[in-house]
Nucleic acid binder design. Structure first.
Ligand SMILES: O=c1ccn([C@H]2C[C@H](O)[C@@H](COP(=O)(O)OP(=O)(O)OP(=O)(O)O)O2)c(=O)[nH]1
Ligand SMILES: [Mg+2]
Length: 532
DNA sequence: AATCGACAGAA
DNA sequence: TTCTGT
DNA sequence: GATT
């Protein structure tokens, strides 16, 4: 559904055959000659070529069933004779030799450009016919990994210009309560509810929305359409950063010294500043495949892979999709409640939902602790979903609690029946349930997450579930560089020096969030300061 | 060219 | 494993 | 995409 996590590192696609019609490159076959360009760059082009309907063939001896036109992309003429073995084809296959520049500009403009200014004259016959075959290299390989830019939009010159960041020092609103303290209270204890939607965020950095919005949109497209999670992630990080600046950026050069913002981003900011938009983004948004895939991927349970699969299968609307039998149960529910789920949840409603669940927990398991985490705990005015973290101070009563809780909530018709992990058992330390709920006094169905942890993991779980995701990834990365492994269940030391290495079965105990940040050498950030 | 968090759950 | 999700 |  959404971008967020970086999912797997490697491959993702491996969808079936050539498309029908629809994609920018649908029906086209191309061979990329990896000479004169970095592998990474090549990979980017191939991925996008396929993402938009094209089929990538291997340089060595491709074979086809029909007469098809094949485009051979290379950096220059010499690369062709050196890196391309003219295949002996059984059918008359037309080969068109083009410079990489062609696909680069096609991608940039979002249109299928004519071959003309890009064709490469080959010494041999421009067309090669043959009568032999080699091996089939349909495209079952597809390795995918990290990629790099392709951009090259407006130039990006840079000059010097200081401009410091600074920031917004805020004071907290919420108190941090970390289990252990309550206990005697009246059963289930809540926590910092920065009550009454009075979350007056100190600063209202709306200064650079016009800059961050387009970048965020690009982030979504890179994730949903191109499955390029890393690129998507950095676009999102930069967008967040711009949102937090306490001043309005009027000159892209001001961003030069901010870490995490490189020349490509500066160039884009520059373009937005001068033209009011990003041509690259506008082109993508104008592409129907992009629009449709984004729509599909906006459904909870549908990611870039399935979105593309559905598109290739010929689906063009959510109604089409709803009839597809291949949908996972999660996607089915995501589709059913798509309209409601798409709505943001007001702070007050999250508070009410939390209270509702808290009461049920209390009746089921006195003494249990529940905290509403996620963006709610960070004090955001609206939330995308409801995140609940549950544990029990006695160290064992949490076991089996989730199943009972879910059962009860369904009886009360708060939870929509949906077998996620309903069947408890759980082989892990953490019981997780992702589902849909509706508070009796509110009209819309909402996404809700439950996570039940043993008390020893509670502080870690709280940090993890409070996020945001960028913070989680950053501090975990930091932990790794310091010889630790941080997760939502503990902080572990790594055996072998720095690189690789693993283990440490036992976590370094931490009772509070403060302890965790302290051990990482970080100043403690209040929940509302964790919107990294 | 390598790295960019760590994990749960469904299929 | 792959995909999607947190 | 950014950083090392
Ligand atoms: O990819 C992710 C997504 C989430 N989380 C953690 C941090 C996050 O704060 C928490 C809850 O996730 P959610 O997706 O609900 O994000 P949120 O921060 O609550 O934002 P919102 O729900 O408003 O979209 O889980 C991650 O570590 N990685
Ligand atoms: Mg949330």
């Amino acid at each position: 559904m959404r971008p967020k996590g970086s999912k797997q590192n490697q491959r993702q696609k491996s969808l079936s055959k050539g498309e029908l019609q629809g994609g920018l490159f649908s029906g086209l076959y191309a061979i990329f000659i990896e000479l004169g360009v970095s592998r990474k760059r090549l990979q980017v082009w191939q991925d996008r070529f396929e993402a938009l309907g094209g089929t990538v063939l291997m340089p060595k001896a491709p074979e086809f069933e029909q007469d098809v036109q094949i485009i051979v992309l290379a950096s220059h003429r010499a690369a062709i004779s050196k890196g391309f073995k003219f295949p002996k084809l059984r059918f008359s296959t037309k080969l068109t030799f083009l410079e990489f520049k062609w696909i680069e500009e096609c991608l940039q403009s979002g249109r299928l450009l004519p071959y003309e200014p890009y064709s490469i004259a080959t010494s041999e016959a421009a067309e090669v016919l043959a009568t032999k075959k080699e091996e089939v290299c349909e495209h079952l390989e597809h390795s995918t990994a990290a990629r790099t830019s392709v951009s090259s939009l407006t130039d990006e010159d840079i000059s010097a210009a200081p401009a410091l960041v600074s920031k917004v020092t805020d004071e907290d609103i919420s108190a941090s309560i970390d289990l252990l303290d309550n206990k005697t209270d009246d059963g289930v204890t809540g926590e910092d509810e920065s009550n009454q939607d009075s979350i007056l965020d100190d600063e209202a950095p709306d200064y650079n929305k016009d800059l961050s919005r387009p970048l965020l949109e690009l982030s979504e497209i890179y994730s949903n359409v191109f499955a390029d999670e890393w690129r998507s992630f950095t676009y999102r990080k930069v967008a967040n950063k711009l949102d937090k600046l306490p001043y309005k950026v009027s000159n892209a050069e001001e961003l030069k010294n901010i870490q995490g913002i490189g020349k490509s981003m500066i160039a884009k900011v520059k373009e937005i500043l001068s033209t009011g938009q990003l041509q690259k983004l506008e082109n993508l948004k104008a592409n129907s495949q992009v629009q449709i895939m984004q729509l599909f991927a906006s459904v909870w349970g549908i990611g870039p892979t399935v979105a593309r699969k559905l598109y290739v299968a010929g689906h063009r609307t959510l109604h089409d999709v709803s009839g597809d039998q291949s949908l996972s149960s999660m996607a089915r529910i995501g589709l059913k409640y798509h309209n409601d789920i798409s709505q943001r949840i007001p702070h007050a409603e999250v508070t009410a939902a939390g209270a509702f669940v808290r009461d049920v927990i209390e009746s089921l398991c006195p003494g249990a602790v529940m905290i509403v985490g996620g963006s709610y705990r960070r004090g955001n005015p609206t939330c995308g979903d409801i995140d609940l973290v549950i544990t029990h101070p006695d160290g064992h009563s949490h076991k089996g609690l989730l199943a009972r809780l879910l059962g009860r909530l369904q009886e009360l018709e708060f939870l929509v029946p949906f077998s996620s992990s309903m069947a408890e058992s759980s082989t892990h330390k953490v019981d997780t349930y992702l589902g849909i709920c509706k508070h009796p006094q509110y009209p819309l169905y909402r996404r809700i997450d439950f996570k039940v942890y043993p008390k020893d993991s509670y502080a870690f779980a709280l940090v993890s579930f409070t996020g945001n995701d960028v913070l989680n990834r950053r501090i975990r990365y930091l932990a790794r560089t310091k010889g630790y492994k941080l997760s939502d269940q503990g902080l572990y030391t790594r055996v072998g020096k720095h690189k690789d290495a693993q283990a440490s079965e036992v976590s370094i105990p931490c009772e509070t969030e403060e302890e965790i940040f302290e051990k990482l050498g970080l100043p403690y950030p209040e929940p509302h300061q964790r919107n990294w």
